[in-house]
């Protein structure tokens, strides 16, 4: 009996040490000439049906078109950011897409340590020789959905549910408010933020409660800029017979016929372009600000919400869009 136990123990120790050896050996075996893209997602996780999922879709599109697999990592705490970035670079990633402004400090530090690795930072500005950074004019896209909301509203009151109260979300809000006022000078925007911890991005129950209270105060359209919390907001809109507005990804399909439109932020295109250009050699460092003109933001119109947007509404929004692109109409961003 004792012998058998000992044998089992010896076997498992052997297996352990072999596995350890294999893991250590496997790490540098990834050839340096091989093209390995990588994505580091933010704390929302890659399936938030919104911001991070847009980045995931971009990476998946690249994988499907080229057949090249990518490495990925989802951040769970603040100190992992730098470590994750460095691990990707050390294990031979050719280009790393860092999703979210919270990654800025980590990209800043690690990109200096690995000058031959390319980095793409989304949602913040960083100017280094091997970093490409992209920010979006969320206020321009929000302006258009704000106009649509004001035109579709019967009460003249519209709602806004944000995730955490941070500058980025205030940028959505300020554009939205300007869009509403553009259509109805006396229009009212009822605003709520979900919370003060990262849990605010993932609290659909709370989102639904906030949306219902806004409906109770007279709003009949609600714009959710709150990650997965927004799913609860949209559900509440359906349950109460009102309309919701989605964010980041095109969310019109979530509840067809009940979602007026979605304020899309083309993070997927950015991630895809980042990987694609790095692969074919046309990748460039530097900062880009993308708005309506560059089609980095916009509003979604498809068969799911076609009946909700009348030709008059579409015409007015398209007009405003052209004016913004031409610079005749100024949308003010949020200034921290």
């Amino acid at each position: 009996m004792t012998k058998r136990i000992l044998a089992v123990l010896a076997n498992s120790v052997l297996a352990l040490s072999m596995a350890t050896g294999a893991a250590v050996l496997a790490a540098p075996a990834q050839g340096a000439d091989e093209f390995v893209p990588a994505v580091v997602f933010d704390q929302g996780g890659k399936f938030d049906k919104s911001f991070n999922e847009a980045a995931y879709n971009g990476a998946e599109r690249f994988k499907k078109e080229t057949g090249i697999a990518y490495r990925e990592f989802e951040i769970t705490n603040e100190s992992q950011r730098e470590q994750a970035m460095r691990n990707m670079a050390r294990r031979g990633a050719s280009v790393i897409a860092a999703v979210g402004f919270s990654q800025t400090a980590a990209v800043d530090k690690v990109s200096r340590e690995f000058p031959n690795t390319k980095f793409c930072l989304i949602d913040d500005k960083l100017e280094l020789p091997n970093v490409q950074s992209v920010t979006f004019k969320e206020h321009e896209g929000s302006y258009l959905v704000g106009m649509l909301a004001a035109m579709a509203s019967k009460t003249g009151k519209v709602g806004f549910v944000g995730g955490m109260d941070i500058p980025l979300i205030r940028n959505f809000l300020t554009g939205y408010e300007q869009g509403v006022k553009h259509v109805k000078a006396d229009g009212e925007v009822i605003t709520n933020m979900t919370g003060t911890t990262p849990a605010a991005w993932n609290d659909p129950t709370r989102g639904a409660e906030l949306a219902k209270s806004q409906f109770g105060r007279g709003a009949d359209i609600v714009f959710a800029a709150a990650g997965a919390t927004g799913l609860g907001v949209l559900q509440a809109a359906v349950d109460s017979g009102k309309l919701g507005i989605g964010v980041d990804s095109n969310q019109n399909w979530v509840h067809p016929g009940h979602i007026l439109t979605s304020m899309v932020k083309r993070v997927d295109v950015t991630v895809y372009d980042c990987m694609k250009t790095a692969k074919d050699g046309s990748w460039k460092a530097g900062h880009r600000v993308v708005g309506l003109k560059e089609e980095g933001v916009g509003y979604a119109l498809d068969e799911n919400n076609r009946k909700l947007v009348t030709p008059d509404m579409e015409k007015a929004v398209e007009e405003a869009k052209q004016q913004i692109i031409a610079g005749q109409l100024q949308v003010k961003p949020y200034q921290p």
Partner: peptide, 25 residues
């Protein structure tokens, strides 16, 4: 815990933030 989180969010978004950046730091 929640009150602490609210205070920190307020301080970092409105008071202590380094001007001109997105990230509340």
């Amino acid at each position: 815990n929640f009150i602490a989180a609210s205070i920190m969010t307020y301080l970092l978004v409105d008071v202590l933030i380094k001007p001109g950046q997105q990230s509340p730091e």
